[in-house]
Nucleic acid binder design. Sequence first.
DNA 1: CGGAAGTTTGACGTGTGTCAATACGAGTGG
DNA 2: CCACTCGTATTGACACACGTCAAACTTCCG
Lengths: 247, 247
Amino acid sequence: MAEKLRAVPCVKCPMRRLPIFKPNTAEEIAFIERLRIEQVGVPAGASIVREGQVKPPLYSLFAGWAFRYKTLTDGRRQILNFLLPGDLIGFQAHMLGDAAHGVDALTDVVLCHHARDKIWTLYKNYPELAFDVTWLTAHEEGVIDDALVSVGRRSALESVAMLLIHLYKRAHALGLTEGNELDLPVSQQHMADALGLSLVHTNKTLRRLQKLGLFKLDRQRFTLLNRGAMERLADYFEKPLDARPLL
Amino acid sequence: MAEKLRAVPCVKCPMRRLPIFKPNTAEEIAFIERLRIEQVGVPAGASIVREGQVKPPLYSLFAGWAFRYKTLTDGRRQILNFLLPGDLIGFQAHMLGDAAHGVDALTDVVLCHHARDKIWTLYKNYPELAFDVTWLTAHEEGVIDDALVSVGRRSALESVAMLLIHLYKRAHALGLTEGNELDLPVSQQHMADALGLSLVHTNKTLRRLQKLGLFKLDRQRFTLLNRGAMERLADYFEKPLDARPLL
DNA sequence: CGGAAGTTTGACGTGTGTCAATACGAGTGG
DNA sequence: CCACTCGTATTGACACACGTCAAACTTCCG
């Protein structure tokens, strides 16, 4: 299911050009290059890390969308958060021993596969990078905090608005938007599982929001029409994103 | 609201005796001692970190219970997770700039107040400790993942069972249990806010579980009566806790 | 003793889940 | 180009878990 690719050199990583990412020194980039074993491709819908997998590999997401989830034994699934380029995969599992959650690809995906056993070298010799890794972990925790508020205390209408504006902002920061449009490779089932709602109710809520003129969503194509109303409905006014490490 | 205390030396930190915590070298402990500015006490019910506070101080919880939460502008509150001795407070905020969440004391609490500006020194000169800090962050994320599954996909009955057994296990690892009993300084309102439920429904669910004989809860005194049934109901079978850093 | 905070219970309303049927879009093969 | 199929989206009818309101009760504590 995973295919090895001819890899882009880290120095030329196209993400380095994006304004949200922090710059690295030449030596740091050289180390990252050595940290990376290979680039691998995974097709849409496939599993990247399985729930319960012991010592799963350490990846960073180079291109494409993915998501983290947990399932109960009877099949109920909760999506924990969505992963976009620049996010780490399997780091929590690396720290804790094994993966308490699964990771699936939402689109075709390109991953940078890193050497698990060099992470310690990173902490020892590249404290800046170690700091960045911690930053990424803390940042992801913040995202999940917000998700928890949605699922726990927001109505379906508010939750859906929150999720969409959140994804829009993240995608925008990565240059994945065109004007106020965006390719959103997220099915209604995914949204339902992320928000703790049923598929049917998610659908009805999406239609309701569109009838209100807040956005348009047709065949994975999302158009943000009334950002202010979305933010007010979601009660979500995040300050602009800080510069973040790419690793 | 915060009172300075005569501090226990870190070498004599009583938590070091607990089996879950990893040992540190003498030099590391000496550094932690220098990292720590003072110990402060905060009374039950008081705020430790305010929502939105910029550059909040960096604490670790030495004794007592606390919790992290976020509130929507109309007052709805979601508790993100509970904090027990050994947990860091304000580290996410330290990384991201300001506190996206508040922290309140559940009981009278003793905090170790650390020097924000020495964290970088920690990363630079004590990679082992930096690694530990990341471990703590990753671990907390795992706890929130579980909370998200509860709030999103578990029924009220299951959620309450999950929360109680989770807290019981954590408290037990810290030696806070006596037999199968435990002082649980968590009101029903707190549980409701942690689980995304209403106060009334939380109460009815608690009574129902007690009538089923799973546990007893009287005046903050919790007695676990049928652990197997609790774990099955919550669909929660965690492997024993790994050794964790105390910082 | 008195008042505040937390807990408990009952009655009733509603947001969201479940079930079931239909429609639609993207592929596939004839 | 037309069936055919399969995943996804849509809609309506109905059920129920959980929320809201309101009132009593209990514990705590000054």
